[in-house]
Design a protein around this nucleic acid. Sequence first.
RNA 1: GUGCCCGUAGCUCAGCUGGAUAGAGCACAAGCCUUCUAAGCUUGGGGUCGCAGGUUCGAAUCCUGCCGGGCACGCCA
Length: 616
Amino acid sequence: MNIFRYFDEKITATCQEIIPGLTDAQIAASGKTLEVPRDPAHGDLSTNAAMVLARPAGGKPREIAELLAPTIREYEGVESVEIAGPGFINLRLTPGFWRRTLGEILREGARYGASAIGAGTKVNIEYVSANPTGPMHVGHTRGAVFGDALASLMRKAGFEVTREYYINDAGAQIKILAESVFLRYREALGEKIGEIPEGLYPGDYLIPVGEAIVKKDGGKWLSASEDIRAQYMANAAVMAMMALIKDDLARLNIRHDGFFSERILHSSSQNAHRIEQEEGYFSGVGFDIDAYYAAHTDPDKTAIQEAVDTLEARGLIYTGVLEPPKGKPPEDWEPRPQMLFRATQFGDDVDRPLKKSTGEWTYFAADIAYHYSKFQRGFSQMIDVFGADHGGYVKRTTAAVAALTDGKASLDIKICQLVRLLRDGEQVKMSKRSGNFVTLREVVDEVGPDAVRFMMLFRKNDAPLDFDFAKVTEQSKDNPVFYVQYAHARICSVLRNVQEVFPEMDWAATGRGEGALDPLQDPDELSLIRMMASWPRMVESAAAAHEPHRIAFFVHELASAFHGLWNRGNDNPQLRFILSGSKDVTLARIALIRAVQMVIASALEILGVEPVEEMR
RNA sequence: GUGCCCGUAGCUCAGCUGGAUAGAGCACAAGCCUUCUAAGCUUGGGGUCGCAGGUUCGAAUCCUGCCGGGCACGCCA
């Protein structure tokens, strides 16, 4: 149950009933909220209803509050109502209400916190989308974890979520990759290749790709025509790199529902099916070609052409000449007429080119088609997770989505800021040129997936993040990963111990009987329930804001409250969870901490962190 | 030069989409504990929410202009 929704609906009904001449629409538009006040002296719940309705109702806030208070005071579970400050109505709920809430939390079990606000809306979350030219490095990790947790969060909130990976398997970098692999192929055939030439990918991870091709085909590619050979090398390389990337991601327990190939956007249906039949390329990279064409309306055209036609039909394509970019010296800038998209009509700074001087489509043109495909596949909400260096790309992409979908679909782009790796307080220097970059795999192998995931989520996505190797593995209160895990493990430990003290009791049914929870009297016990009561709302607001970090902070706070109660048991043994002299009190407290355990586990599940049962 | 993000306690950061006297951890200070409910506890000091205007019952939050830091900015992907 969501106590906020419960009381909010009651208050809305009361407003409709008590305040004369107020329309439902006015109430809906008022911005009326129900919140937990920061200061506990202001009660358990507080509403601004009287203040925001004062104007449409034509009265003074405190007068309106006086009008509403008597009815609210009669709600079941309300202990007292006060009018305070400029017109807040503060509700204090009875201990009995909180204990009943705990009972409901336990009955709902693992489902508790799930919400229906998503209403089955189809959401496409695109994240990682690292270029398939090598293993994942630590820079990709934050976006990967963020996107994955956001997907879980939105699922919990009732959205129908698809996790998607966009494979940038077209363009110049793939040609370079193909050349690099061809070199490794020759090397595998016994040729001395010496230094890897400037501009090619030097990484060792391409060596096995070359060897695999030799094993399969022998030397036959040495004599093949350049076009065919390059395409073959590219395909083999991308397939191998995607396998590598998927394996890296699996170490962080990240699995996408779908992979989308940029290359297919450049292909007609016939051509794409031929590639699949001859080379198994699309299935090799994980792209479901049949599912794509099922949603694609015109298989004889390329997807890019189709998207551009759509824009053209709306008068959003024209030929024009762009100003040279400002700030930097123009160097080899040459003005020329080119095909442009009217991005400025949708909030972008300049109109954007769709074709290169070579006649090929730009990357942006393909990206337009990609987002159009998402829309065609029925996604009305799209979320892209980008790295900090792609911030400049936000406006044009949202502009394209607005233009293509006529405002029927929304795109939210989440930017993940940089991660600074620290070892012994010193920043770990990375540079691509020297090949000295830390891979995702290295980090996960060193500190484990749980620590990586939690730390990456324990910060707002648009704030830079320090990742300190020493800190994330430290066993102390200062390490939030440990602190939260430890709370869960402590509860597990109590649940193990209680079976020895009261072996005959049925703990599976803890606290479900009438009055069984009455022994919960201590204010800290009740405030633990209060905190858990806000869990469903936390899920909803975090999901609506696309901010999984809120879940991490919430679970840290809940763990902190639990540890606080535990610590009081050190000084006062009467407050311990297991009282060998009192079965009833033990039963109620076990019920309480079982709920805490469950909510912690639910939160960790969203974050993708394993709730451990004991600390080692 | 333009756009985006950030600016909150000495440090690292939250702040529930506009609510009441702005919070937490670290660090600092004082006191407690030497235990198996181990991987510490309690209390306290500490703030011009970058600056200046504006919007309204009410602003850290929204708008404008500055200041400071980061990231981008051409047919790359």
